[in-house]
């Protein structure tokens, strides 16, 4: 499963949002996520992938943007 599909599954498990409706480049706000639910999601994503998002990260607004950041942070442990 690629990162985007894993993230879709996480979002579904956490917020019961239908996986089929989640589009890689749509703003997460379109699915009803606000700054608070996004913070919870990022915490879950960190747990799931065993990563730490840097404090100075770019705003993560889309699934594809989030997946790119996850992949970037996972590289060292995958090497």
């Amino acid at each position: 499963m690629n990162t985007i599909e894993e993230l879709k599954q996480l979002i579904h498990d956490k917020f019961e949002i239908d996986v089929a409706t989640l589009k890689a480049d749509a703003p997460l706000a379109d699915y009803g996520l606000d700054s608070l639910s996004l913070a919870e999601l990022l915490f879950t994503v960190e747990d799931h992938f065993s990563i730490d998002f840097p404090d100075n990260r770019q705003d993560v607004n889309t699934l594809s943007g989030l997946a790119a950041l996850v992949d970037e942070l996972r590289v060292p442990s995958a090497a």
């Binding site: 956490k14 917020f15 019961e16 949002i17 699915y31 009803g32 996520l33 608070l36 639910s37 919870e40």
Partner: peptide, 8 residues
């Protein structure tokens, strides 16, 4: 509440 609404 929906699951999304339950965040926090």
């Amino acid at each position: 509440f929906s699951r999304l609404q339950l965040a926090g």
